Simulated assay, not measured.
Amino acid sequence: MSRLRGTTVLITGGRAPVALDLARKFAACGSRVLVAESAPADLCRRSKAVAATFRVPPPNRAPVAFAEALAGIAKREAVDLLVPTCEEIFWVARGLDVLEPHCRVLAEPLERLRGLHSKWEFVRQAEAFGLPVPRTVRGAGLRLPYVVKPVFSRFATKVRVVTAEEPAPDEAWVAQELLTGRQVCTYSVAAAGRLVAHAAYEVEFTASGACVNFAPIDDHPIEQWVTKFLEKSGFTGQIAFDFIDGLPLECNPRATSGIHLFGPELAEVLYGCATGVLPGQPLRPDPERRAMLGLAMLGFGLGQHGLARWWRVLRESADVIAVPGDRGPFRSQLDVLWHTWLRSLWTRRSMIECSTYDIEWDGR
């Protein structure tokens, strides 16, 4: 019998596919799953895996009220574990002192997360651990061409390739050597620096820079890099890295799409990280597993790698959103897209930027 049977789990970030997938994994293990979200639409409210959803204040506008709302839910609903998924994790971490009296929280303290989220501090930290990293500077000093990007950013929305001499970027930006080879993303779970789950997948079909199809690969050098970084840092929780040519571009100390490569056993591992009951060997995905964001593959994938390749991936991959027996979230994703599009029109920002407008954290 699963150790999760009879537990209550609160997942934040309900607009995201990773939150929906985690909700299903925890429910499959016997948990009662609750979801909290600050946006007016989320993916989870129509899922059969979710017992209840709660609207909470926007964390980057009302961080105190956000933490207090989560604490109130945890107290009223007897929550055993709170699992953040997306960038709201930084605001959850900011409110740990309010939350931890009421439930376990799968989040490191904010200052530790800051050093991983920062594209400057992360590279310096990895370099101090003796790990290979791309040449990265603040200011001038790189040969052309190179890339500039904000110290705190997401989805590569402001990444720019520099091909001619120009003034050095200010302290809010970093310059990094331009890498152009194989792109690999990883998703891992760690407990006090010990790797307890790991998946790697190659970036192929994308939507606004984000990967939308997922197939596990074995990349031993990258896994060694991740393992050593985790050991040196002593990190606990969910963490992901983006690599090009075997060198790390950035770190995301939160859930990412790599969770789609695992089955319900990932929920057991996450609960074990919070309770100290860990598997003997790291959990790895089934090598035959294939997943995708179906609507994104239909809308963005066609034409990226040829019709034959696109059709093969579409045919072999399971949609993350609409799964047999739980089709409600397919309609919910249309609600999310509609509200995001309206905000995009109102703010004149891209839809991808609007998808995180109320949860972004830039080191404040």
Results as ranks from 00 to 15, higher is better:
261 L>I: 04
234 G>K: 06
219 D>Y: 11
237 G>L: 08
218 D>W: 10
219 D>H: 15
273 C>V: 13
285 P>E: 04
228 K>N: 12
256 T>K: 05
254 R>I: 05
238 Q>M: 15
240 A>E: 12
242 D>F: 12
218 D>V: 15
266 L>Y: 00
223 E>N: 12
230 L>Q: 01
235 F>Y: 14
286 D>G: 08
254 R>H: 05
263 G>W: 09
228 K>Q: 15
284 R>G: 06
218 D>L: 14
230 L>S: 01
221 P>C: 10
268 E>D: 15
247 L>M: 10
276 G>W: 07
223 E>D: 13
262 F>N: 01
219 D>G: 09
285 P>Q: 07
284 R>H: 10
250 E>I: 04
234 G>E: 06
230 L>V: 02
255 A>P: 08
253 P>A: 11
239 I>W: 02
225 W>M: 04
283 L>H: 02
225 W>Q: 01
265 E>R: 13
269 V>K: 04
228 K>T: 14
247 L>V: 08
233 S>I: 02
239 I>T: 09
247 L>G: 03
258 G>E: 00
225 W>E: 03
261 L>S: 01
249 L>M: 13
269 V>N: 03
221 P>E: 11
261 L>R: 00
269 V>A: 06
265 E>G: 11
258 G>A: 06
265 E>S: 14
284 R>Y: 07
245 D>G: 09
229 F>T: 00
223 E>K: 12
274 A>R: 03
223 E>A: 12
253 P>W: 01
231 E>F: 07
240 A>M: 09
243 F>D: 01
282 P>A: 05
257 S>W: 02
246 G>C: 10
246 G>Y: 11
268 E>W: 06
240 A>D: 12
272 G>S: 09
224 Q>V: 13
255 A>N: 14
286 D>C: 11
264 P>R: 02
269 V>W: 04
251 C>Y: 03
287 P>Y: 05
285 P>C: 07
269 V>T: 11
252 N>T: 13
234 G>A: 05
220 H>P: 13
244 I>M: 13
232 K>R: 15
245 D>A: 10
274 A>N: 05
251 C>R: 02
283 L>K: 02
238 Q>D: 10
284 R>M: 12
262 F>D: 00
252 N>H: 12
266 L>I: 04
264 P>K: 02
224 Q>C: 14
240 A>V: 05
280 G>P: 06
287 P>H: 08
264 P>G: 06
263 G>R: 09
223 E>I: 07
220 H>E: 15
221 P>Q: 11
248 P>V: 06
275 T>A: 12
234 G>C: 03
275 T>Y: 10
232 K>E: 14
231 E>H: 12
251 C>I: 06
231 E>K: 12
283 L>G: 01
